[in-house]
Every structure is written in structure tokens, then in C-alpha cells.
Design a binder for these strands. Structure first.
Lengths: 227, 227
DNA sequence: CGAATTTTTTAACAAAATTTTAATTCTTGC
DNA sequence: GCAAGAATTAAAATTTTGTTAAAAAATTCG
């Protein structure tokens, strides 16, 4: 249950102060002083929260925040020096969950951490944040969002529904009739080629655009999505 | 509840006097005579207030104050010899919360300590409130208040409730029906476009006014707020 | 209490985006 | 090489959304 907090801060005394404050309250901590290494560790290791200083060697906190947010939901609290108003504003711009300005009281730090963790857990419970993965494609049902190689793909409602149906049945070939029934809600076997048209749309937005084959045709039968 | 006060003073008789005065009033105390060690202890141990003499071996009080203030909010009262006016002024510039000139009456000491502690507690209460952050927008649930780029946004009750629901579910697309249920309390699927109208109101007060996109439409599905 | 103000809801229309149709071109397997 | 199935494309049809104004409801204030 002890949450693991990643402290990214290059000034040793401050890092120590943060570490002591947090460990005294029962959190586990890890430290990193270098920006680029911090970015790598956030992606590879599993932390419950990141305390991120803005000023860092090699890669600054804002850049880290932005890049991490492209792939991860890990809670981030930005830490900025007093009166660095520009930093504050930019930092928030990039998707941090909260921010603190130095100097701060330990109580404030703890209150903010608990607040961010609580809200994050509530969100997890409510949304059951699930995802489907095929190759470099990730489909997030609650967000109605699809990314390929970290880049968001803009889909219409029908395109999304069709892709979701394929992805939910990864590797299975689905007939046009099955698809019409499930995605379009037709209960008769229609004389239409909408499915073909929409498969074509999806391919142009995904397969063609990213140069990888996701959607396969099985002649005389239907379509399937595969790794 | 007994506050712990850190006495940094290299003249033993004065330190003893301070200690006695404070302990008689129910405060806990700790002592330190060396400047550099005092600095380290302030960062590592947890004190509710620091009484800091200006003249100290190895690192003077002003330097300590300045360095501590880079990270910590701990209340500091500077203690200076009589008529060292320059010191007095500089001490305040460096972030001390109050100052006293020697010699002083015990009553004055206690009054200043209580004053500083009271103000600090007020500050803490204000700082500990939770907040939801999206880009440059901050929503303070307890205050019923929303700011963008530090500027307050005037919202009606329904506008605020809708925005809060979106922000609580940052990144997730919420359908009009979900919104109607949660924000309007409708339990039937209404034939109404109030949600659209209120989204439009919010956009004119936030997105349009501040020239940043907060509220996104997912056609055929609903709305989401995103960084 | 009642007038004035503010907020909420309804309704209508224009604009924009999506979906469907349908005609044409391209592929595949025999 | 040919025929059936599949892919593509553009235009037409439909749906959805954004915005406004006015009506209705709620709230404030003297």
C-alpha cells in the first residue's frame, strides 16, 4: 500500500528534504537528478507519483512532463522556484496534475500529494481505465481515443465503433453481416458496401499513414485485425 | 500540539534564557550553536519555528535564512543585536517572518512567536485546499471558484457544475446523457440540447476569452476536457 | 410582496461534419 | 485473361453541432 514516489530534483539538499518528509509519512521514494535519465526511468519503472522540478540538467521538467503524458497517466506534481511565473504557467500547460512553488511547508507537500493520489484513484475506480493494444496501436475506450506510435488518430464515430469491434475480436475474421449487425445495428442483411468503405477509411488513417498493416482481408469472408 | 522551536544562538546564556522562557510556556525546544549544522538540521528535522541569531560561527543567520527559504516555508524569526539596522532590513529581505532586537522582554518574544505561528497556520489552511488543474485553468472545489491564467472566471451554478464534472473526468469523453444525469439530475434520456448550450457558454467564457482550447467535442458521443 | 435581474430552458436555424450511395477502378485466384 | 470480389472515390443525403434569441423559471432586492 505504501505509494512509491519518484523525486526528480537536481539540488541535493532539496531532494533530501523531500525524501525525508515523504519517508517520515510512510511513502517509498526514489531519486533522480538528471532529466533525461528521469524520463527513461518514469517510463520503465512503476511509480505512483512523480515530483518533478522544472530546472534540470539535460532535459527540463516541462519537456519530461509533456513527453510522459503522451504515453502515461502517472500523476505528476511540478515543483517550481518561487515567482517563476512563466514556468508555472507553462508547466501546467503540459498536463501536470498539480504544482507547488518553493519554498513550501512539508504539510502542504503532503496535502497536495494525498489530494492528487486520491483523485487519481477515484478516476481509476470509476473509469476502470482499460486499453486494447494491437502492434503500435492503443485504443482507450473511455476516452474514445486511438493512438498509433503515440500519435493520436482522429476518427469519426462509425470509424471508431468499427475499429473497436475489430480490436475487441483481434485475430478473428468478422463477416460483413456480423459487422453490419453489431456496428450499424442493421438486423437484415443489407445490400450495401458501407463496411468496405469504412474499412478503406480506417486503412487510410492507420495502415497507410503509419506504414504498418493492421487490417487484413479474408476474401469471401470478411475482415480481421491482427498484430 | 506543543510546537517545537529551534533555537539557533551561539551565546550560551542567551540560548538558556530563550529555552527557559519558551518551555515555561509549553513549547518544546532544540538548540544549536553552529551555523552550518543549524542549516542542515532545519532541513532535515521538523520544526514549527526557528529563532535565528544573526551572528553565528561558520554560517551566519542571514545566509541560513536565505538558503532555507529556497525550499522551506518554516517560520523564521531573526534575532539581532540592538541597532544593527542594516542587518534587520536585510534579514527581512531574505524571507524572515519577523525580527527582534536584543535585549527583549519575554512577553515580546512570546507575542511575536504566537503571531508568526498564527499567520503561518492560516497560510497553511489556504494552501492545503485541493484543486483540479487543466492547462492554465485551476478549479478550486471548496471555493467554488475557477481561474484561468490567474484571472477569476465568473460562472453560474450550472456552468460551474458542468465544468467540474468535465474536469473531474479529465480526458474522458462524457456523453450528453451522462452529463444530463450527473449535472442536471435527469434520469430519463431527455430530448433537449441544454448540454450543448452550456458547453457553448463555457467555451465563450473560457476557450474563446483566453484563446486556448479546453473543451473538445467528440462527434456522435459527447464532450471532454483535456490539456 | 412584487418588480427587476439573472439564470435556465426551449426552439429554430445555419454551418459543419459524417454517413451513405453508387459508380468506377483495382486485385486476386483460377 | 477474366470474372468476382474488394478498394477507392466523389457527390448526395443525412445527422450532428454551434449559436442565437426569446420564453420561462428562479432568484434577488427594495
Amino acid at each position: 500500500m505504501a505509494e512509491k514516489i519518484f523525486i526528480v530534483e537536481d539540488e541535493r539538499p532539496i531532494a533530501r528534504l523531500l525524501q525525508l518528509t515523504l519517508e517520515r509519512e510512510g511513502f517509498k521514494t526514489a531519486n533522480e537528478t538528471n532529466g533525461r535519465r528521469a524520463y527513461e526511468r518514469i517510463l520503465q519503472e512503476k511509480y505512483d507519483l512523480v515530483l518533478l522540478d522544472v530546472m534540470l540538467p539535460e532535459m527540463d521538467g516541462m519537456e519530461i512532463c509533456k513527453r510522459v503524458r503522451e504515453v502515461s497517466d502517472v500523476p505528476i506534481i511540478m515543483v517550481t522556484a518561487r515567482d517563476e511565473v512563466r514556468d508555472k504557467v507553462e508547466g501546467l500547460d503540459l498536463g501536470a496534475d498539480d504544482y507547488m512553488t518553493k519554498p513550501f511547508a512539508p504539510e502542504e507537500l503532503l496535502a497536495r500529494i494525498r489530494g492528487v493520489l486520491r483523485r487519481h484513484n477515484e478516476r481509476l475506480r470509476n473509469a476502470e481505465e482499460s486499453r486494447y493494444v494491437v502492434k503500435n496501436m492503443i485504443l482507450y475506450p473511455e476516452r474514445y481515443e486511438v493512438t498509433v506510435k503515440g500519435e493520436k488518430v482522429e476518427l469519426t464515430h462509425k470509424e471508431y465503433a468499427l475499429l473497436k469491434y475489430l480490436v475487441e475480436n483481434k485475430r478473428n475474421v468478422l463477416s460483413r453481416d456480423q459487422i453490419l449487425q453489431t456496428v450499424w445495428g442493421y438486423d437484415y442483411i443489407g445490400d450495401t458496401n458501407v463496411v468496405d468503405v469504412y474499412i478503406s477509411y480506417l486503412r487510410s488513417k492507420i495502415d497507410d499513414k503509419f506504414g504498418e498493416k493492421y487490417i487484413y482481408t479474408t476474401r469471401g469472408v470478411g475482415y480481421a485485425i491482427r498484430d
